[in-house]
């Protein structure tokens, strides 16, 4: 399974990579903004994307809309500090399959990822 990690924090990209090491994943890219992420989705066709929202150039909500337009089968898990219900619902309506609030523990990530993989 191909994974793309998107977060403007390099430490969060490393955290997500380290905490998902037990899954059979091929990390096909890491992006620090929505524009880079969209290009990587087009070029590398990941099965799963972990997507931050507050990012430069293109935020995660706009990026999610663009991903759903070009690759609607992609499973997107939002991982964001924005902990209000409105933003979570907006992301789910726009096609995200999971929504995790930072700060995320390794257990949160595994639970969210398992839930994402077990859904049709």
């Amino acid at each position: 399974m191909k994974l793309l990690i998107v977060d403007d924090s390099s430490m969060m990209r490393t955290t997500i990579e380290n905490h998902l090491q037990n899954y059979d994943l091929q990390i096909v890219g890491k992006a620090s903004n929505g524009e880079e992420a969209l290009q990587m989705v087009i070029d590398k066709k990941p099965d799963v994307v972990t997507l931050d929202i507050t990012m430069p150039k293109m935020d995660g909500i706009q990026c999610l809309e663009e991903i759903m337009a070009v690759a609607p089968q992609t499973k997107v898990m939002i991982i964001t500090a924005l902990s209000d219900k409105y933003t979570g619902l907006e992301a789910l309506k726009k096609g995200a399959r999971e929504y995790l609030y930072k700060p995320v523990t390794p257990e949160d990530l595994k639970e969210g990822f398992d839930s994402l993989l077990n859904r049709n």
Binding site: D84, Y86, T87
Partner: peptide, 14 residues
């Protein structure tokens, strides 16, 4: 700082 500020949206909304 991003997470501390972002989590405040739980109180003050979107």
């Amino acid at each position: 700082s991003n997470v501390v500020a972002g989590n405040v949206r739980e109180t003050y909304g979107h």
